[in-house]
Simulated assay, not measured.
Amino acid sequence: MIHFRLSDSGVLVVQPSGPITSEDFTAIQDQVDPWLESGGKLKGLLIDAPDFPGWKDLAGLRSHFRFVRDHHREIPRIAVVSNDEFLSALPKLARHFVKADFRRYDAGETAEALTWIESPPEPRLPSIRHSWFPAEQLVWVTVDGKVTTEEYKHFLSHIEAILAKHSPVSFLVNFEDLEGVELGALIKDTKFGFTHIKDIKRMALVGDSKWIKRLTSLPNPFSLEIKSFDEDQEHQAWNWITS
Rank of each mutant, 00 (worst) to 15 (best):
I2L: 04
H3A: 13
F4V: 04
L6I: 06
D8S: 14
S9N: 12
V13I: 15
S17G: 10
D24M: 03
A27L: 07
Q31E: 14
W35M: 03
L36Y: 15
L36E: 10
L36K: 14
S38G: 12
K43Q: 14
G44C: 00
L45V: 11
L46S: 04
F52R: 05
P53E: 00
D57H: 09
G60T: 08
H64A: 03
V68I: 11
V68N: 07
R69P: 03
H71T: 07
H72K: 07
R77Y: 00
A79G: 01
V80P: 00
N83M: 00
L87E: 00
L87D: 00
S88I: 07
A89P: 01
R95H: 13
H96D: 08
D101S: 14
D106Y: 10
A107M: 04
E109Q: 14
T110I: 06
A111F: 02
L114N: 09
E122W: 09
R124M: 02
L125K: 15
L125Q: 14
S127W: 03
H130C: 02
S131Q: 08
P134A: 07
A135D: 12
L138K: 08
V139I: 12
V147Q: 02
T148S: 14
T148E: 02
T149K: 09
T149I: 01
E150I: 11
Y152A: 00
K153R: 14
H154G: 08
S157T: 15
H158P: 01
I159W: 05
A161P: 03
I162F: 04
H166N: 15
S167L: 04
S167K: 13
V169M: 05
F171A: 01
L172T: 06
V173W: 03
N174L: 01
V181W: 06
L183R: 12
A185Q: 03
I187W: 11
F192Y: 10
F192K: 08
T195L: 06
K198I: 08
R202A: 04
R202D: 05
D208A: 09
D208I: 06
K210T: 12
R214Y: 13
L215I: 13
L218C: 02
P219Q: 10
N220R: 15
P221Q: 11
S223V: 13
E231C: 08
Q233S: 15
Q236Y: 11
Q236E: 12
W240Q: 01
S243L: 06
